[in-house]
Design a protein around this nucleic acid. Structure first.
Lengths: 189, 189
DNA sequence: AGTTTTTTTTGCCAAATGGCAAATGATTTC
DNA sequence: GAAATCATTTGCCATTTGGCAAAAAAAACT
């Protein structure tokens, strides 16, 4: 629980009173493997911070196929922001693919925090900007490369993920089929 | 020049004094076709807002190939943020591919504005968050699809761009070769 | 250990894409 | 309007990838 505060403080200053307030509202949430933090179609009711573990962000496309959009390994905000803010149905699933330690706030608690701490909004915006930059950089790398280059990049980016998650997730993230990925791996090893 | 203020005000409130200050520092900048707003390798010295026209964001990859990362058509911030903030060499080129109307601020002017208007930082963060969301959505769509689907999506996304810019830019953006794109177009039309 | 169940690898073939160079078409320039 | 320049299409063939189903391997369960 105490890990959240230093993370937040990286992005803006808060006084002790504000810190205590956040700590008081924070709820620790442990997710087991394959459990969902939030689901597409439902309204996101929690604002979470991933402190430990790996989350898979995925969606179902028009043909009903499951699509892994990306993985979250490091400290990060967890929520479908549009859904959380506007009570719209979420468009993605947030699924724990390893045991995860999450610190979560209910919609109401989070609103109260934002009212009590005006800086919070800016802090969140900064965090989001940073996370988005990462995401854009990673996605950009995917577009222009062929399968094996994508896979090699994946290995660099998530070195400790390969042997922990199903190959199908990786293939979906890379935008290739599982059998192609399997063949690619054979040529690389 | 007067278009900038309403754009900024969408993202936060400013009083008249602050607005005047921004207007005073703002410099109109018109770029002709193919001119660069900023170049990779150089340090970004301007903070710009694209008010009109189309900008191409591109880079040169390891093999010396030019890579179109994306296009900016709508109102948007223009700068390599990391380069601008930290005086690091920029990683991308920002090139006008049509006549562009830009409102620009020098590094020094922008710093002065940020000091004089604390809200400005938050406003910029909000703008960036929004732009990044768009970018992520667009990039995600590129990864998992095949060439013709990518092209069809491109047509929807930038309906008035197809006939104004070189095919090679589009192909590069889509992550396919120009000849493949040409063949794809033949099957679609 | 033996049986399911799940995950990964293969085989086979069709379809999509890349690479390269030449041909065609469009635009600019003088 | 002819020449030169630039952009796009096409041909040819090698390589990559997809789709599908079966086989093999690994993991989970009893």
């Amino acid at each position: 629980m105490e890990e959240l505060i230093p993370y937040i403080l990286q992005f803006g200053k808060l006084n002790q009173e504000q810190i205590d307030l956040i700590s008081k509202k924070a709820k620790a949430l442990d997710l087991g493997k394959d459990a969902y933090f939030s689901e597409a179609g439902k309204i996101a009711r929690q604002f979470g911070f991933l402190m430990k573990g790996v989350i898979r962000v995925c969606s179902i496309d028009d043909e009903g196929k499951e699509l892994t959009k990306y993985f979250i390994e490091e400290e990060s905000i967890l929520t479908d922001l549009n859904s959380f803010d506007n009570k719209a149905p979420a468009t993605v699933y947030l699924q724990a693919i390893t045991e995860c330690k999450i610190i979560a706030f209910s919609k109401q608690d989070w609103e109260e925090l934002k009212n009590a701490i005006p800086e919070l909004d800016n802090i969140v915006n900064k965090i989001i900007s940073k996370l988005m930059f990462q995401k854009v950089r990673r996605l950009s790398a995917l577009v222009s490369e062929d399968g094996s280059t994508r896979y090699l990049n994946f290995l660099e980016l998530y070195p400790n993920l390969v042997n922990r998650i199903p190959l199908s997730y990786i293939a979906s993230y890379l935008g290739i089929t599982q059998s192609s990925l399997s063949r690619i791996r054979k040529t690389i090893l």
